[in-house]
């Protein structure tokens, strides 16, 4: 269990007192600040790519949500789109039935997805990784089929039509260039990121890491695993639901695609690319994933999935660690400052 892993020289941390060490571990690092300044800077710097940037922000938030359960609690999922989809449909239906103010819709959709996640969480408490993969996949498939069949509510295969989203706080209208959309999605992602960052550094977050690391011992020191897992699964579902709601609100349309298996898989791929367990993996992975997709589909519109698959196979076979070490050697100190243990 305690295999030897490479470690930064101990001398750098040894001098610190425990309290200072813990504080330093939680402190904001400058690359983090740079990351967010750049993300917000793109509002002005890339005015004609806001639609793509909006998609990236939403995918980033969705992957961040998966990272909360995968990277921090060790819960594997192949059906995370279930909560994305619930949030997306909730936002669409809310707007159709009179609640067209986006922020209100966003919060309510998150709450509805969270409730779904809370109920689903009882099924992932026990069992192996394989069981969890199957249960999460099954839940997403069931919801997909429900959305398909209940077409008088969801619009079925035609998608939900007539979604009209009002201006944010009654003041900021969505525009065709996607500028409002990007600002809205990025701000939401940023605020939720702040909360996630806070939570993973709390005693609660630490106990999740302990559960992931060694559930047997965590139980022996009195941590009741179930309640912690339910809590984080519910929170992740809220995040995923809000990501889904953002997609509905910024595109004014919902289709069955929001519940697709491919969407669950995308989130997992994003985390494979970006790395899990340090919160930025989902965000950086989303940028890389969307850019790769954008570039590849521009080069070979028909075969971009082939190249995407090819890159992923290489990534996993060579190992993200080794590949990144080769490609990103100059960036290693930067990643380390961002809090990556093994970039």
């Amino acid at each position: 269990m305690l295999n030897k892993l490479p470690e930064q020289p101990a001398s750098t941390t040894e001098a610190l007192s425990p309290a200072a060490f813990l504080q330093a571990k939680a402190a904001w690092r400058w690359p983090e600040i740079l990351f967010w300044i750049s993300a917000f800077g793109l509002i002005l710097l890339l005015p004609n790519r806001h639609l793509l940037l909006n998609e990236i922000a939403i995918l980033g938030l969705f992957a961040l949500s998966l990272d909360l359960i995968l990277g921090y609690a060790g819960i594997v999922s192949l059906g995370h789109a279930a909560f994305f989809g619930v949030g997306a449909y909730a936002a669409g239906l809310l707007s159709k039935h009179g609640i067209s103010e986006p922020v209100t819709g966003l919060v309510l959709s998150g709450a509805i997805a969270g409730l779904t996640g809370f109920l689903a969480s009882f099924m992932i408490l026990r069992g192996s990784d394989l069981t969890r993969l199957m249960v999460t996949l099954g839940v997403a498939l069931i919801l997909h089929e429900l959305a398909n069949r209940l077409d008088w509510i969801t619009g079925g295969a035609d998608g939900l039509l007539g979604v009209t989203i009002g201006p944010i706080f009654g003041r900021f209208d969505f525009d065709f260039a996607g500028t409002t959309a990007y600002v809205y999605s990025l701000t939401t992602t940023f605020l939720l990121f702040l909360l996630a960052r806070h939570v993973v550094q709390s005693p609660f977050g630490l106990s999740l890491k302990a559960l992931k690391d060694n559930r047997l011992r965590a139980s022996t020191i009195g941590i009741a695993p179930n309640r912690r897992l339910i809590a984080i699964y519910t929170l992740a579902a809220v995040y995923a639901g809000m990501a889904g709601a953002l997609l509905t609100q910024t595109t004014q349309f919902v289709s069955l695609e929001v519940l697709d298996f491919a969407r669950s898989a995308d989130a997992l791929l994003v985390l494979v690319i970006g790395g899990s367990g340090y919160l930025y993996g989902g965000l950086i992975g989303a940028v890389a994933f969307k850019l790769m997709k954008d570039v590849l589909s521009a080069m070979t519109p028909a075969y971009w999935i082939f190249w995407m698959g090819f890159i992923l196979v290489i990534l996993v076979l060579i190992g993200r660690d080794r590949l990144m070490a080769m490609l990103a050697k100059p960036f290693v100190p930067l990643l380390r400052l961002l809090g990556v243990r093994r970039p």
């Binding site: 295999n3 060490f21 813990l22 939570v199 005693p203 609660f204 690391d213 060694n214």
Partner: peptide
């Protein structure tokens, strides 16, 4: 807990004993 430091490991157990192990609103330490 292979990935945690001893100080985190021990404070985890102490926080749990004191009933503050599920707190999410303040930072460890």
């Amino acid at each position: 807990f292979a990935d945690l430091s001893p100080i985190e490991t021990i404070s985890l157990a102490i926080a749990e004993r004191e009933g503050s192990g599920a707190r999410w609103w303040n930072r460890v330490g």
